[in-house]
């Protein structure tokens, strides 16, 4: 996808959002039709107006701009790999508990990103977890995600 195509897609999305937002205010209770519903309607109108304006600008620029590819990630493997790891890590927090999930996540992510020395990986992982245990759990008594597995 080129950058221009992505822009078009986003703008159309915003336009649809604006219309949906505007229409949704009809369902607000009658008591707020003149207060918050009006505010939300204004947001919908303004978003729609500016999205249309930007669409106009988009067409006016036309093909004058050279097609530039939209590169979300410089190194897609690492980028998406890390993102998927993050999602899995977050989802596993309530199952495995914070410490276990983190003890798996950190080394995996480091390996993915090209760390190869086992000593550094283990020391960093251990150090970070120890720090969190001391500062978050011991000192400040912040509740960390607990697991249901045990």
């Amino acid at each position: 996808m080129t950058r221009r195509q992505a822009e078009l897609l986003l703008l159309c999305g915003f336009l649809i959002l604006a219309v949906l937002l505007y229409r949704s205010t009809a369902a607000y209770p009658p008591t707020v039709q003149n207060s918050t519903a009006r505010y939300v309607r204004f947001l919908g109108l303004a978003l729609g107006f500016f999205s249309l304006l930007e669409l106009g600008l988009w067409f006016r620029k036309g093909a004058a701009v050279k097609a530039e590819k939209l590169a979300v990630a410089a190194v897609p493997g690492r980028f998406w790999g890390l993102f998927i790891l993050l999602v899995v890590y977050s989802a596993s927090l309530t199952r495995a508990g914070f410490y276990l999930a983190s003890a798996v996540f950190l080394p995996l992510a480091m390996l993915l990103l090209g760390a190869r020395k086992p000593l550094t990986i283990v020391l960093t992982t251990g150090g970070v977890l120890l720090f969190i245990y001391l500062v978050f759990a011991r000192l400040l008594a912040v509740p960390l995600p607990a697991g249901t597995l045990f």
């Binding site: 410490y99 276990l100 003890a103 283990v122 020391l123 992982t125 251990g126 977890l129 607990a146 045990f150």
Partner: peptide, 14 residues
């Protein structure tokens, strides 16, 4: 250290 950490993690939600 790794082992210790895992044990620590396991010991928590007793």
């Amino acid at each position: 250290i790794m082992l210790l950490l895992i044990v620590l993690a396991l010991a928590f939600p007793g």
